[in-house]
Design a protein around this nucleic acid. Structure first.
Lengths: 166, 166
DNA sequence: TTAGATGCAAATGGTTTGCATGCGT
DNA sequence: ACGCATGCAAACCATTTGCATCTAA
């Protein structure tokens, strides 16, 4: 059962993270981030800790490199944009984050790495999870010969309901 | 009538195009492209005609600006990259093309504007339509208040099956 | 000490823009 | 002739890279 788990490492990482965030969470996010980093083989450096803290300290989030950079700056954490990108990618490779490609311009990173899909608000470029975790594909086509499914991305693009005028 | 001429014409344009490509298609694509352009209110200029010809002359295609540029160049059609981008966007706004956002880096344009989804081959960055037109969403979540669904994009990401070793 | 991490600035790649010239109506 | 269309190059923006300097182990 459950053999169609293609993104296997996400799963493991997810467990690790959940364990850390919900298990021995003591109220001091620094400790947990440190364990999390160690668990995936990344050195717990000053900036990785701070970024991990910002990223995972308050529930599921969707942010771009720029967003995280501003947030870090606001939080008085000295980080360079280059490091933000490095960290974001390292976290993603480690399975702590999931990269979501929505509009083709900038990249978004989702702290929720479980199997789920997204709503994307056109214009606002806002991204959020589709609450119902059970959305699935109906009548999935056969996977072409020689290929395997790496992932299925579903993006429901929303637009503000045309409120009367305008 | 014809007051909300903003995004309404996707549908109309599709009909026009289908009529032109399947209806009174005479074998001379130039004539059809010209009609098609006129139908959506675009001046049938040399390059728009040529690009329309390249784009719609041979079935459903998925290409990037760069791809089309090379193709045009190879076909001895003098066009600048800027014009390629302009044209691609104008065609898209007119509903003749559909932009597909897959990887976040470059933009792809699909000459198949009907409701359908895609396979995306990671690594090769190859994009193609999912043959079964009936793929649909199972258990679609409720649309958030105040919003309406603009479109649903489903991208099935494929990767070459790991052939034994490696 | 030492490999790995960071910061800065310069390089990149896709896409857009400003403006002078060209072409469809 | 008028005005949109085009071409070119410079501008842009998100992201990446090279390299010298730090820092965790």
């Amino acid at each position: 059962m459950d053999m169609t788990r293609t993104m296997v490492f996400s799963k493991e990482a997810e467990n690790d993270r959940r364990a850390m965030q919900c298990g021995d969470l003591t109220g001091c996010p620094w400790h947990d981030v440190k364990s999390m980093l160690r668990a995936v083989g990344l050195r717990p450096t000053r900036q990785r800790m701070a970024l991990g803290w910002l990223l995972f300290g308050k529930g599921d989030r969707h942010l771009s490199a720029e967003t995280l950079y501003e947030e870090a700056t606001r939080a008085k954490v000295p980080v360079s944009l280059a490091t933000i990108y490095n960290t974001l990618h390292q976290f993603t490779e480690a399975g702590l984050l999931r990269q979501v490609g929505v509009d083709g311009s900038k990249a978004y990173f989702d702290t929720n790495i479980s199997d789920h899909h997204h709503f994307f608000v056109e214009g606002d470029n806002e991204l959020f999870d589709i609450p119902d975790a059970n959305v699935g594909l109906d009548r999935m086509p056969a996977t072409p010969e020689g290929y395997e499914i790496a992932r299925i991305d579903v993006v429901v693009r929303l637009r503000r309901k045309s409120d009367a005028a305008k």
